[in-house]
Simulated assay, not measured.
Amino acid sequence: MGAAIALQLADRPRHEGLIAALVLDSPVLNWAEVIKANCVQSGLPAAAGHLAIPWLTLAPLARTVGLPGRIPLRSFDWTSRAVELNTPTLILHGTRDDSVPIRLSQALRDARPELVELETFDAGYTLCWNADPDWWQNAVTAWLKVRIPR
């Protein structure tokens, strides 16, 4: 949820000029794809992920499962909204992430190479720092020094 919140804030015109850069660790950049991947990871048929999406995105179905309203998953799909991203972004992602497919981070980097950098680690979901704290610290510090004036 951290990346989704950070990206939504950076996307708001009222925050223009306030957010100089983003550092995202194991970000969920496309909730629909992550839901589908986690269904498969859990041993469910691939179709289960496809079938789950309407229960979140269509108001009547969302209310049926106890949500107050629909969840606008498309607004959280930064792989499709890459052209709208205006904030320099460093993504840290583990190559062994079995919860959030690294291909989503790669897709955002590939769509916006002038704005998005990807640093990979031999790590699982949210374990980049744990895998190599020095490498993580150096990567983040060096990247921010170039982008954040003092």
Rank of each mutant, 00 (worst) to 15 (best):
V28P: 07
C39F: 15
R12M: 15
T57V: 09
P54L: 09
H15G: 02
L44M: 14
E16H: 12
T79F: 10
R70D: 12
L24P: 02
L73V: 11
P45S: 12
A10I: 07
A21V: 13
L85R: 05
N30W: 06
V83D: 15
N38C: 08
P27H: 10
L7V: 10
L67R: 04
P45C: 02
H50Q: 11
A10R: 02
D77A: 11
R63M: 10
V65S: 01
E33T: 01
D11Y: 02
L29H: 03
I5Y: 10
A10F: 11
R81G: 08
A46D: 15
S75W: 13
H15M: 13
R70E: 13
P68F: 09
D11G: 00
V40G: 01
I53W: 02
L73C: 00
K36C: 03
L85I: 12
N38M: 03
G66M: 08
D77T: 01
G43L: 07
E84T: 04
A46P: 10
L51M: 15
P27R: 09
P45V: 13
E33M: 13
A37T: 02
G43S: 09
L51S: 03
H15K: 06
R81Q: 11
N38F: 04
L44Y: 15
L7S: 06
W55V: 07
L24S: 02
V23N: 03
I5F: 09
L44P: 01
A62N: 04
W78T: 01
G17C: 14
G66D: 10
T64E: 14
V40K: 07
G66K: 04
L67W: 08
A10K: 05
L9V: 03
P27L: 01
A20V: 13
P60D: 03
L7I: 11
D25G: 09
A4K: 08
P27Y: 06
R74F: 00
R70K: 12
A59W: 05
N30A: 14
T57F: 00
V23A: 06
G66C: 08
R81E: 07
G43V: 09
G49H: 10
A62D: 03
G43K: 13
Q8F: 06
P27A: 07
A20P: 05
G17E: 14
T64C: 08
L18E: 15
L56N: 04
R12P: 02
H15E: 12
R74W: 03
D25V: 15
Q8Y: 03
S26N: 05
R12T: 11
P54G: 03
A48E: 09
P60G: 07
S75Y: 10
A82H: 04
A59C: 00
F76Y: 14
E84C: 14
Q41F: 04
W55R: 05
V40A: 14
A52C: 01
L9N: 00
A10N: 07
V28K: 08
T57S: 13
I53V: 06
P13Y: 07
S26R: 05
Q41E: 15
A37N: 01
P27F: 09
A47V: 14
V23C: 05
N38E: 12
A52G: 00
A52R: 00
V34L: 12
W55E: 00
W31V: 09
I71Q: 05
V23F: 12
L9H: 11
P72C: 02
R81M: 03
V28F: 10
S42K: 12
G69V: 13
L61R: 10
